[in-house]
Design a protein around this nucleic acid. Structure first.
Length: 885
RNA sequence: GGGCGUGUAGCUCAGUGGGAGAGCACUUCCUUGACAUGGAAGGGGUCGUAGGUUCAAUCCCUGCCACGCCCA
């Protein structure tokens, strides 16, 4: 016997273990089934589960389970990302607690400590994914620093280098002065900041008392100025172009140049040019051959290129000093408040400094071509489609990708330098040595580049490196290209774009046919969840409180395309209740000995009731299947929810009660079999969304003989099961009962009071329907009997009149009714029907409508008119009988 | 500044070229033999705004307003 409620905490771990043990998650490369593959976006190995993961993995798991049940050989490829900077920071923090600095430890020892940390703590996130019910093929779990994946990285690096698509360059990079590494444009976050705009007077050489005023947000960098720019069209400054100014606080003379970069409407119209410390100024400097003067060291402290008094100062201290000195010398004209965008490192949280260094770059512009083309010709399709615009926008304006990082944890760049600086890029040290020998005619000492690659470089290879590339494995041939990538829009640039580039380049084919982009999970007020706001909802806490299925169903139901998911706990509670509802429907079936009968064929059911529920189920199944195929997760959840609760539990189960306790043995047997059959199909249909409760119920329904639900077949319900006549009949019964209940409530008939009813003016169908379902109607509308009578007249003083489609019912209250109240009720109803009739009449009276509207639309209006007229005449007659017009 | 998206019931959101929906919240009633994590009934919306297309617009098009996100 089932318990009264489902106990997720006790049952989930047991079921998960059974799934894993059964091998249900594993793909089967040798099978004859069609393959289906999803590459899991590898979470950071340092990560812990948040709602974004929960949504992302729930959707992937739904697709995985759905396709698996539909008979595909599914590979959901799991793994984790080594997350270079993030992981190094975690381990450095741990070392700091032991008072150890990584530099004193040395590179090799440090890397050892990272691996040790990974072995101990790196499994957190994958363990957490298990408690979400995720069913990837754990036996194939990969890590981006695995030997195989590292080999792929080296091969890609070397071949891109040899093609000239990876190169070394000295240019400005985003320098993180805290982490001491370059970062890519994407790892820089611009934050709107309230600052100042300082107006500084630069004296013009040879014209005493003449100044040009520049406006700047970063006065401290003036010590690296090598020019002043004005717009060539700016009349205020035209006469000064070509003249020199004395750079205040120094003795340096720098030229005034004409450049479009200077905006005459901003600030003073003249700008200082610091080519070594500003991306725009770098370009201006290049156009005018201005020298680059680097004034910062790697900590962003001032170096020896500045006057002595500023050396060694931090950039922020230097700003104060420079301003004070300018003020003292009368060169600070004014200060205005100014809002500007300041770049911050997304990991370190400190202000990023544009800094001149040697770094490795990928020619992304070139690689982007094939990726753009692939999306243009539909080889990869984004769902929802509009994200293709975002993708194109980024890809068409893509900048060189800085891939070297000055940290230790990651794939070390396979480049070796000879003493003369010549570089040899090879997959192994031996190959580099051989190349050097060939180059110099003798062995020379080689020094390996110390930098490592951007983490996203290895993630970009994920869809094929995990399948064994560069080896030609059977898995690679079978599962690449993958079918779907499920991810959030925030990593379209970081990851999707780069996988597209690398996949097209090295596999000659896109990495995935479809990219499903889901939204961000926000809190119930629509705010992004963040630690500082304290509005984080922890998925594991939710799972503990409401069960995994409740969380999964909630995320699914809210995952409408093109909209953020706003998560309110009340929704989760509601879907937990849904799981309970399903559970109790099964409990009802069990109590009534509804057992699965393998020989039962719903198409052969005799009772209208059973034909109707089978057809309704088929309809819901078709809708859910279509929705999942189209990634309309919420629509699938919605169709199944409404069938389960609104149709099966609210009506069918109630309807079945008189049959199950009745005397007709054949009807009982058929209804029992139908109930069990519907529930059996239903747990299959709900399984991808709510895997635990359905698996547990399946065990009970099938008496342990049905195998695991996760391995079962998706129900292919024939649309032939949808029986229009049975639907019309049962819909009428439902409407009849609802109408009687409404009237009873309005007339304050106590719910427990059973009353007699009379029916008259019934059509042929309605008479038959009422006879057939007499027991159901009596039970659900709480009537003692329904007597057919020849006429409603004379309406008695103790009868209320219920107008339904195709019949008139009289409810006998066995006592005087409040005639005034009854009249008011009928008048209100008549008023509503008249209003509707007016609307229909206006339409049908419109010749344009009759001439131009589709025939079906006109017919529909005519039908509605006929129904409304019939209802109105019954209402008028009813009113006449009690003496009210 | 460029791009994208969103404005529908008190809240969170579905939805459709022709009769406005769900969940939660709210009101009233009900411990009936699956379920009070339940059942029954009910109140509540000029579908942001102004135009246009159409026989017909909440839905399609345009402008505007508001909000959100991404990029510069």
């Amino acid at each position: 016997m089932l318990d009264k409620t489902f106990d997720p905490g006790a049952i989930e771990p047991v079921i998960y273990a059974a799934w894993e043990k059964s091998g249900a998650f594993a793909c089967d490369p040798k099978s004859s089934k069609r393959p289906y593959c999803i590459a899991m976006p590898p979470p950071n190995v340092t990560g812990s589960l948040h709602m974004g993961h929960a949504l992302n993995h729930t959707l992937q798991d739904i697709l995985t389970r759905f396709e698996r049940m539909r008979g595909r050989d599914v590979l959901w490829q799991p793994g984790t990302d080594h997350a270079g900077i993030a992981t190094q920071m975690v381990v450095e923090r741990n070392l700091a607690a032991e008072n150890i600095d990584r530099r004193t430890l040395g590179r090799a020892k440090f890397i050892e400590r990272v691996w040790q940390w990974k072995a101990e703590s790196g499994g957190t996130i994958t363990r957490q994914l298990r408690s979400l019910g995720a069913s990837p093929d754990w036996s194939r779990e990969r890590f981006t620093m695995d030997e195989g994946l590292s080999a792929a990285v080296r091969k890609v690096f070397v071949s891109l280098y040899k093609e000239g698509l990876i190169y070394r360059d000295k240019r400005l990079v985003n320098w993180d002065p805290k982490l001491h590494t370059a970062v890519s444009d994407l790892e820089v976050e611009s934050r709107e900041t309230k600052g100042s705009l300082w107006y500084i007077k630069y004296p013009v050489v040879g014209r005493d008392g003449t100044f040009i005023t520049v406006a700047t947000t970063r006065p401290e960098t003036m010590l690296g100025d090598t020019g002043v720019a004005v717009n060539p069209e700016d009349e205020r400054y035209k006469h000064l172009i070509g003249k020199n100014v004395v750079l205040p606080l120094t003795t340096r003379h720098i030229p005034i140049v004409a450049d479009e970069h200077a905006d005459p409407t901003a600030g003073s119209g003249a700008v200082k040019i610091t080519p070594a410390h500003d991306f725009n100024d770098f370009e201006v400097g290049r156009r005018h051959n201005l020298p680059l003067i680097n004034i910062f060291d790697r900590d962003a402290k001032l170096n020896d290129s500045v006057p002595e008094r500023y050396r060694g100062m931090d950039r922020f201290a230097a700003r104060k000093q420079v301003l004070a000195d300018l003020e003292a010398s009368g060169l600070l004209e004014k200060t205005e408040p100014h809002t500007l965008m300041v770049p911050y490192g997304d990991r370190s949280g400190v202000v990023i400094e544009p800094w001149l260094t040697d770094q490795w770059y990928v020619n992304a512009k070139e690689l982007a071509k094939a990726a753009i083309d692939a999306v243009e010709r539909g080889a990869t399709v984004f769902v929802p489609r509009q994200w293709e615009n975002t993708f194109f926008e980024w890809m068409r304006n893509i900048q060189p990708w800085c891939i070297s990082r000055q940290i230790w944890w990651g794939h070390q760049i396979p480049a070796w330098y000879a003493p003369d600086g010549f570089v040899f890029v090879e997959e192994t040290e031996e190959a580099a040595k051989a190349a050097a020998r060939a180059h110099y005619g003798e062995d020379v000492a080689l020094r390996r580049d110390e930098d490592v690659l951007d983490t996203w470089f290895s993630s970009a290879l994920w869809p094929f490196s995990t399948l064994g590339w560069p080896d030609a494995t059977p898995e690679l041939a079978r599962y690449y290209p993958t079918d779907v990538l499920v991810t959030g829009f925030d990593i379209i640039f970081f990851w999707v774009a780069r996988m597209m580039m690398m996949g097209c380049k090295f596999m000659g084919e896109v990495p995935f046919r479809t990219v499903y982009i889901h939204a961000l999970v926000r809190d119930e007020r629509g705010q992004k969840m963040s630690k500082s706001k304290g509005n984080i909802v922890d998925p594991l806490a939710i799972v503990g409180k409401y069960g995994c299925d409740a969380l999964r169903f909630t995320l699914t139901a809210l995952a409408a395309q093109g909209r953020d998911v706003k998560l309110a706990e009340s929704r989760i509670e509601g879907y937990r209740n849904f799981a309970t509802k399903l559970w109790n429907a099964a409990r009802f079936a069990e109590m009534n000995e509804c057992k699965l009968d393998p020989k039962f064929d719903p198409a052969k059911a005799k009772l209208r009731l059973n034909k109707w529920i089978a057809g309704s189920l088929a309809q819901a199944a078709l809708r859910a299947t279509e929705a999942l195929e189209a990634f309309e997760f919420n629509a699938a959840a919605d169709a199944l929810y409404h069938f389960t609760w609104g149709t099966f539990c609210d009506w069918y189960v109630e309807f079945s009660k008189p049959v199950l306790t009745g005397a007709d043995e054949a009807a009982r047997a058929e209804t029992r079999a139908t109930t069990a059959w519907v529930l059996g199909r239903l747990v299959h249909l709900l399984h991808p969304i709510m895997p635990f409760v359905t698996e547990e119920l399946w065990k009970h329904l099938a008496g342990g003989q049905g195998g695991l639900l996760i391995k079962s077949q998706w129900p292919a319900l024939d649309a032939e099961l949808i029986d229009r006549d049975a639907s019309a009949e049962m819909d009428w019964v439902v409407a009849l009962i609802a109408q009687i209940r409404t009237v009873r409530a309005e007339m304050n008939v106590p719910p427990a009071q059973e009353i007699a009813a009379y029916v008259t003016e019934a059509g042929g169908d309605e008479t038959a329907w009422l006879a057939r379902h007499d027991a159901l109607v009596r039970r659900l509308a709480r009537l003692t009997r329904i007597h057919p009578v020849a006429t409603a007249a004379p309406a008695k003083q103790n009868t209320i009149q219920v107008v339904v489609e195709g019949a008139l019912l009289l409810l006998d209250l066995a006592g005087a009714i409040d005639v005034g109240k009854e009249r008011a009720r009928l008048q209100k109803e008549a008023k509503n029907v008249r209003a509707e009739l007016d609307k229909i009449a206006a339409k049908l009276g419109n010749e344009q409508f009759l001439a131009k509207a589709k025939a079906e639309a006109v017919d529909e209006q005519r039908e509605r008119q006929a129904e409304a007229r019939a209802a109105l005449s019954r209402l008028d007659a009813a009113l006449a009988r009690i003496g009210g017009a």
